[in-house]
């Protein structure tokens, strides 16, 4: 494991037991999360983002089978930990912020109670825990934190709730924060404030963030690097600016072209990617994107593309970019 990485996913394979066989949800996933960086994870619904997140957090469903791979947090392989050991890491070295803050905060306990409760590991007095909660609320710019500690989640606005969830997740100054679409429920102005805040806190605390989203604009503004997933595979990763300027994988390119924000002229007909996702139970032998790819040629249907470095991207899985494949 390289020293600069806070978290590293290596050749991860996860499948689900389903009637009719094995659904291979994640295949050979590699993900580098450098220390103190914000890493974007983009992909359509069903591409395995959630499975990957759950596996990192040790929250997989009981039907999930880890076939192979490692998730390294420092020198520890999270996949070899017993549930109790994993629990000790959660909320301490790894935290998460989820999509809906109303569901991640307890509706019948005050914010203050929840924020002191999660400091159960710290051997400090109740007073000190409360002070720390106030300090954390100040950091996420909740006005008048001292008195608001005695309020319940429903008494806060949506943007504030999400900021409280962020405050709680960062309370223990974790090494890695997994943020699963934390701004989806907010309007553009609050989305912007939340992103600004997340960036400031991240610099303050120095943690790494895995930011999962559909919103390409948010990735471009927030993340240093971006990883594109498709049908359970990582198809491209690299520095955000380079990937956005010159996407190397045809899927990435099409995905960017579909973004309505990219289309300057008003149009009634939005571009889409034709075709369907391949079945993850009976996987095609070649490239997973072959059936929908406008640039598919000779080897694509038969041979699975290998990882190559191309253009500004660190990794791309495409025969078009592979110097050893005759074009």
């Amino acid at each position: 494991m390289s020293v600069q990485n806070a978290l590293e996913v290596r050749d991860l394979n996860i499948s689900y037991k389903v009637p009719g066989g094995k659904l291979r949800a994640l295949r050979d996933i590699n993900l580098n999360v450098p220390r103190g960086e914000i890493v974007g994870l983009v992909g359509e619904s069903g591409c395995g983002k959630t499975t990957l997140m759950q596996t990192i957090l040790g929250l997989q469903s009981s039907a999930a089978v880890t076939e192979s791979g490692q998730i390294m947090l420092g020198d520890t392989d999270l996949l070899t930990l017993r549930p109790k050991q994993m629990r000790n890491l959660l909320g301490d070295r790894i935290s998460a912020v989820f999509q809906d803050p109303m569901k991640s905060l307890n509706p019948v306990l005050t914010i203050g109670r929840q924020m002191t409760d999660i400091q159960f590991r710290h051997n400090i007095s109740q007073r000190e825990k409360r002070d720390r909660a106030v300090e954390m609320l100040q950091k996420v710019r909740i006005p008048d934190p001292e008195s608001r500690l005695d309020q319940y989640a429903f008494e806060f606005s949506g943007g504030m709730r999400q900021r409280i969830a962020i405050a709680m997740a960062l309370m223990a100054e974790p090494d890695v924060l997994v943020a699963d679409e934390p701004t989806t429920a907010l309007d553009a102005t609050l989305e912007l404030t939340t992103i600004d805040l997340l960036r400031d806190l991240q610099q303050d605390i120095g943690c790494a963030i895995i930011f999962i989203t559909h919103h390409l604009g948010v990735v471009a503004e927030l993340c240093q690097s971006v990883n594109i997933m498709y049908a359970g595979e990582m198809v491209e990763s690299g520095p955000t600016r380079a990937v956005f300027d010159a996407p190397q994988h045809p899927y990435t390119e099409l995905l960017f072209n579909c973004d309505p924000a990219q289309i300057p002229e008003r149009t009634r007909h939005l571009p889409t990617i034709g075709g369907e996702l391949p079945s993850l139970i009976n996987l095609p032998p070649g490239c997973v994107f072959e059936g929908r790819c406008p640039k598919a040629f000779g080897p694509c249907a038969e041979i699975h593309p290998r990882r190559v470095q191309s253009g500004g991207s660190d990794m791309v899985k495409c025969h078009l970019r592979d110097p050893e494949v005759p074009q």
Binding site: E44, S45, T184, H214, L255, C258, P260, L270, P271, T272
Partner: peptide, 8 residues
């Protein structure tokens, strides 16, 4: 909750 291509 839909990605950009399905959204279109």
């Amino acid at each position: 909750g839909l990605d950009v291509s399905v959204q279109g």
